[in-house]
């Protein structure tokens, strides 16, 4: 109820409401951007731009776009993917095109101070690589069911049940 109220006020360009939403979601969006970019400083800058973008697009959100978090996550990951494409970091791109979520803690030596690597590893503990890849594709790359199925060479019908079981493992790790 409180969230709905905040969103409503935000859509009427209420800055206090927007600040509250920023405090709720900033770390999540900036984290999602960093999963894609694997560059904490650049991610922090881009994250700021993303919130400005969210503000200017506030009137475009409605329930046909899903959850509010889903909507802002989509804006964030589109901005991050655009950023990747605009840069010619080919080596990084190669890594990212496979497993950015896995990559972020495999390469965590560089990111040590800035990223909660331990927290990330404990969440992903016991998950199969295919599970991590599927989570990455659906939540951090914005793949559709069909695209994810093609990437994993699996039937489209299995994607829903697979993602459910993968996420339930993380939820167990959280408990």
């Amino acid at each position: 109820m409180q969230l709905d109220n905040l969103i409503e006020r935000f859509q009427k360009k209420d800055r206090a409401a927007f600040e509250a939403l920023y405090n709720m979601y900033a770390e999540n969006l900036c984290g999602a951007i960093n999963v894609i970019l694997k560059d904490p400083e650049r991610s922090q800058e881009l994250c700021q731009d993303v919130f400005v973008k969210i503000w200017t697009k506030s009137d475009q959100y409605d329930t046909s776009k899903g959850r509010f978090f889903t909507w802002i996550l989509n804006i964030a990951r589109n901005a991050a993917i655009d950023e990747l494409r605009s840069k010619s970091h080919k080596n990084q791109k190669k890594n990212l095109s496979v497993e950015s979520l896995v990559g972020i803690y495999e390469n965590s030596e560089d990111l040590n101070d800035k990223v909660d690597t331990i927290g990330l590893m404990s969440l992903l503990k016991g998950l199969k690589d295919k599970c991590i890849l599927l989570i990455d594709l659906l939540y951090f790359k914005g793949y559709t069911q069909k695209e994810a199925a093609e990437e994993l060479k699996a039937p489209v019908g299995t994607i829903k049940t697979r993602i459910r079981s993968c996420l339930s493992e993380i939820r167990k790790n959280m408990a």
Binding site: G31, E41, K114, G119, L123, Y139
Partner: peptide
């Protein structure tokens, strides 16, 4: 779950 997962990858803000 997704929020928690993404938060762990967040740079310091």
């Amino acid at each position: 779950t997704i929020m928690k997962l993404s938060r762990t990858a967040s740079p310091e803000l």
